[in-house]
Design a binder for these strands. Structure first.
Lengths: 188, 188
DNA sequence: TGTACATCAGTGAACGCGCGTTCACTGATGTAC
DNA sequence: TGTACATCAGTGAACGCGCGTTCACTGATGTAC
């Protein structure tokens, strides 16, 4: 039966939110359209009233996740100093919680490799999101703009690599060692 | 028709080598047993004379790739100083070639995320390999052992993250910026 | 060394399964008057 | 405001396809004597 415009918008947001979570948890190819729709309390056939394809959903989900990340950094900046905002970002990024819960975390360690392989609008959304995160970090680091950008780029690379390694070695000592080393050497 | 022991060993190595390349290029789930066998100039049915399952092949391929990486570091160390060996490792890691050719490169950016998700022997092989790489790097860095290990851990995280980001943004300026920033700030 | 036979590496068809996408259908919603 | 009808969000079956794995078969290899 037909749903109201408002109900459709709610379905749309639910699909996007569940996709954003499931894609980060299991990967894009490893998450089926039917699973996403079930998580959104819908049946799979209705998916195509909302998105033209699974690829389009993946690109939209990536864009939404990155927008949320940059938005969060800006929100924190309203009540804290730029330096404190970056420090909080780094501490959260390198937390055990972030390792354990990819569905709520940064999409770069979770989906970066896959997005690059998939190319097209998915890789485009990933690239645009990464650029925005580096912009947001660089603008909050001190020093000349060039230096701040380079520091932001290296910082993000370290964070992403630490999470990839920690998740690949989950439960083993080496993963914890990498996380701890990065935390301490990034000054936390 | 039955093949000789020697011929079987050659097939085994060919399957392992093609799997190691294809898994890194496309991911484990995205590479079919049939594709690997075709690349090894065999038909897919014969696969199970060599490996009990695709998972077992993936674990074996990861172990073989990591053994090659650590072996290469040791080989270079025979003709160069520890410091030069690490510098060469870093320079190769952050090269444009490494970004463009994942099939020949480090499995951590290519397969780390997927290995963590798959768990079991695949994640075990990844964790063991990562531990060996960090050992190999740490033993070639100067200073107290604790500090050297922490530096090695952070270094590897930065390298891995830089490649994940560069591949996710392939062709876009932001990827090159991250690579350049990491190269320069790691002293190359 | 030669012979007879068991083994098994590799082939190619087949299996059951899950996937992304399509489609006919239902009935509440939105719109035109 | 009320009515008649077109729209379309959501349902659930179906589609074609590719996958990992199994299997009967072939014939060269390895072994026992």
């Amino acid at each position: 039966m037909r749903q109201s415009r408002e109900a459709k918008a709610e379905s749309h947001e639910a699909i996007l939110a569940e996709a954003a979570r499931l894609f980060r948890e299991r990967g894009i190819a490893q998450t089926s359209v039917a699973e996403i729709m079930q998580a959104a309390a819908l049946t799979h056939g209705g998916f195509y009233r909302h998105f033209a394809s699974k690829d389009e959903l993946a690109a939209a989900a990536l864009a939404a996740i990155f927008a949320g990340i940059v938005g969060e950094l800006e929100t924190v900046s309203e009540r804290e100093s730029p330096r404190a905002a970056v420090e909080e970002y780094v501490a959260t990024y390198l937390s055990d919680d972030h390792v354990r819960r990819p569905g709520l975390g940064c999409p770069i360690p979770a989906l970066g490799t896959e997005a690059g392989r998939l190319g097209g609008t998915i890789a485009g959304a990933a690239a645009a999101g990464i650029a925005k995160v580096i912009d947001a970090l660089a603008s909050r680091l001190p020093g000349p703009k060039q230096t701040a950008r380079a520091r932001a780029a290296q910082l993000l690379a370290t964070l992403v690599g630490a999470i990839v390694i920690a998740r690949a070695t989950e439960g083993e000592a080496i993963g914890r060692e990498v996380l701890t080393a990065c935390r301490e050497r990034l000054g936390l």
